[in-house]
Amino acid sequence: MAMGMLLAHAAIKEGFNSSFIPSYGPEMRGGTANCSVVIEKGFIASPIVTEPDVLVAMNSPSLLKFKDTVKKGGHLFINSSLIASIPTIKSDIHIHKIPANELALKIGESRASNMVMLGAVLAVTNLISLETALLNLNYIFKNKPEVLAVNEKALKIGFQSLKENKVKTAVI
């Protein structure tokens, strides 16, 4: 959720229109909490995402639920720390595995795995620049300035994991 919100917020700062739809209700309390983000130059027709260009799966239930929706040529980011056995995935998309929790632990905050994933997404897709994301982190953590620094680190380490270490990226 925070990842999507940051992306949508930062996109506006780069001059795009954006929308963010959270799941609400019981899904928020476990299971496949998810959100949809649309970033467009012009007016956003439908904020509903049925065929995403980019899908980020943080855990196994989410991956199973959404893996087949990714558009041909799109990108699937998998948090390999929490998704041990990866199911069959269609072959016309790019798959990126990021051990987000391990990387987050390295910087001392396992809860920052979402920002690690976002960093990785930005490294591959250039949806928005890493700089804009870093500048707007306080939008998400406005009430918790003490975690700003560690989340900055998380974004950077995620970004570098794919920029500098292509080994973990399996492009099929």
């Binding site: 949508a8 229109n17 963010f20």
Partner: peptide
């Protein structure tokens, strides 16, 4: 509707 109420947009 719930979608408009819950979604965020510019």
């Amino acid at each position: 509707d719930g979608l408009l109420g819950q979604m965020m947009e510019s």
